[in-house]
């Protein structure tokens, strides 16, 4: 039925086998180069401070991270374990981007529903999106208190771009698909539910991808100011007492966390798009 079946049924020609081998070699070369780059980075990070070319006080080194990590795992009466810190950051990020998605979809739908509302609010949304939201960290701390200000910052950073992206996705719905629904007498809410929303799923996933990164930024910046828990707090604390080992360990965990969340979204994207 499909082309793929025909290909697999026919015995592969020598040229095809060669092409496959070349493709495979290319893929391996790229993976290898990626790993090599990471290794070079780690080696330079390890060697330069040890050779006193850069001050180890400022950079720490990779081999110091693991012992620091093990040490930070233990929670003391004064301080929580590093996994508790990481979990606090992850949880706040999840709450942040979930809220940004839900509120963003609701607001984008309202803007789609009432065209004039969009026309009125459009310049404000654009400016709000362009504003450096981190300027509000101290104010949010005053307004919302220690915990809520972190969620608030996460939401503030990701919400406006979410609204703009999703609204553009809604607006980009093929007008002929809407016309088709109208020929069957569809109401506005049916058009939204059966045409606009399902048609915008790729946009929603793109928005989610952007969101996860931005929410994490918001949470970490919020934690700098107000938290006594979370990786942002740990970074702040470590730099204040000049223990770069702690800072670098926290940043490394942050890198791992954001990679994992990005992978999770990519997996979700693959699952959703395969069904289309």
């Amino acid at each position: 039925m499909s082309k793929v079946e025909i290909l697999t049924l026919a015995p592969p020609s020598a040229e095809y086998a060669e092409w496959l081998a070349r493709e495979r070699r290319n893929r391996l070369t790229i993976r290898g180069t990626q790993l090599a780059l990471l290794l070079i980075f780690l080696i330079l990070w390890e060697v330069l401070p040890r050779a006193q070319i850069v001050n180890p006080l400022f950079t720490s080194y990779p081999s110091a991270l693991w012992p620091t990590f093990l040490e930070l795992l233990k929670s003391t009466p004064q301080s929580a374990g590093i996994l508790t810190h990481a979990w606090a950051t992850v949880l706040a990020t999840i709450i942040g981007f979930t809220a940004a998605m839900l509120i963003g979809i609701a607001i984008a739908a309202a803007l789609w529903w009432w065209r004039s509302l969009h026309d009125v609010l459009d310049p404000y949304l654009v400016v709000a999106n362009a504003m450096p939201k981190t300027a509000f960290v101290p104010i949010f701390y005053i307004w919302l208190g220690a915990t809520l200000s972190i969620y608030g910052m996460s939401l503030a950073i990701s919400l406006f771009v979410t609204i703009l992206m999703i609204y553009n996705g809604f607006q980009g719905t093929d007008p002929n698909k809407i016309k088709l629904a109208q020929t069957f007498g569809a109401t506005k809410s049916q058009i939204l539910a059966k045409v606009v929303l399902p048609g915008s799923v790729p946009t929603l996933i793109a928005a989610l991808k952007v969101n996860v990164g931005l929410s994490l930024v918001g949470v970490v910046v919020g934690e700098f100011q107000s938290a006594n828990l979370g990786l942002g707090y740990l970074i702040q604390y470590g730099s204040q007492i000049f223990k770069l080992n702690i800072v670098m360990t926290a940043i490394t965990i942050l890198a791992i966390v954001s990679s994992l969340m990005y992978l999770a979204i990519s997996w979700l994207e693959a699952v959703v798009m395969r069904r289309r």
């Binding site: 002929n176 016309k179 020929t183 069957f184 007498g185 049916q190 048609g199 289309r276």
Partner: peptide, 22 residues
Amino acid sequence: LQQDYLFEWRTILENAVLGAEI
């Protein structure tokens, strides 16, 4: 319409019953 405008997120059968559903 000029083109089929089938919804890519629906199966063939689900597309065919769109009008009835609406």
